[in-house]
Simulated scan of single mutants.
Amino acid sequence: METPEEKLASPNLGDRLSAVGALRDIPAEHSVALLVKAAQDDNARVRYAAVSLLGQKEDRSVLGLLRTLLTSDPEFDVRAAAAAALGDLHAQEAYEDLAAAFAQDNEWLVRFSILAALGELGDRRAVDLLVTALKGDPLIRTVAAGALGQLGDRRAVGELVAYIADEDWQLRFRIAQALGELGGEEACSALQTLAADPNDAVSSTARSALEQLAQ
């Protein structure tokens, strides 16, 4: 039976994809080097599969590669996977790379993944960028709201409260979650309003948040 290393050297795409899949459950010390090789494969599907796994390996030696792929890979799904992996690794040193990529990349999936990663990073430098995203593309506003909650910076409360009557219930839902994470008097007041929201998911989330904050 061929090893993952042997399969990665195969000219057959199926073999190389199979090799990456086999590395999922192998400890980092035995898999990261092979995933790094796969992340530079000529085929975008192989690169995407490998990059998606690198964030799960908790090996920060791959940060340089991920930062490069974030801005230089020709395939948007690979760039998005690189952003997600940087978030998984809580790589605050990649904040500037993520912010620059958000400003330059027009693919919504990449931008979505960058905002989600910024929430995972926990770097409060991202507040202004996330607030700006909250005011923009409907496809990414919800993830911006969620990321603001993750950051835990109460400077964002007023910005989130401004959208509690937005017509998009999914945005109101994420705002209820975020306000529950942020807390404070202004957040609680807004959550009381959201607790009467006509959408059940929004109202129940707001009520649960209020209960948690009252403990």
Rank of each mutant, 00 (worst) to 15 (best):
M1T: 15
E2N: 13
E6L: 07
K7F: 13
L8A: 06
S10Q: 08
S10R: 06
N12C: 04
G14Y: 14
R16P: 04
A19V: 11
V20E: 09
G21Q: 09
R24I: 11
D25V: 08
I26Q: 03
H30M: 04
L34K: 05
K37D: 03
A38L: 06
A39F: 10
A39K: 04
D41Q: 00
N43G: 03
A44M: 02
R45T: 15
A50S: 09
L54G: 08
L54W: 14
D59T: 10
S61K: 11
L63V: 15
R67F: 12
S72M: 10
S72Y: 14
D73W: 15
D77E: 15
V78K: 05
A83T: 15
A84P: 03
G87P: 00
G87T: 08
G87D: 02
L89H: 12
L89M: 10
H90E: 14
H90P: 01
A91L: 05
A94L: 04
Y95K: 03
E96M: 04
D97E: 09
D97C: 01
L98T: 04
A100M: 05
F102L: 08
E107Y: 15
W108M: 04
L115S: 06
L115Y: 11
L118M: 08
G119H: 07
E120K: 11
D123S: 03
D123Y: 07
R125E: 14
A126G: 06
A126V: 13
D128I: 13
V131R: 05
T132H: 10
L134Q: 07
L134R: 10
L134T: 09
K135T: 14
G136E: 00
R141Y: 11
T142P: 09
V143H: 10
G152R: 05
R154V: 13
A156E: 00
E159R: 06
E159V: 08
Y163I: 01
A165E: 15
A165Q: 12
A165R: 12
E167A: 09
D168M: 03
Q177A: 04
E181V: 05
E185W: 08
A187L: 01
S189Y: 14
A190D: 11
L191Y: 03
L191G: 02
A195I: 01
N199M: 06
A201L: 13
A201N: 13
S204R: 03
T205E: 00
S208V: 02
A209V: 02
L210R: 00
E211A: 04
Q212K: 09
L213Q: 06
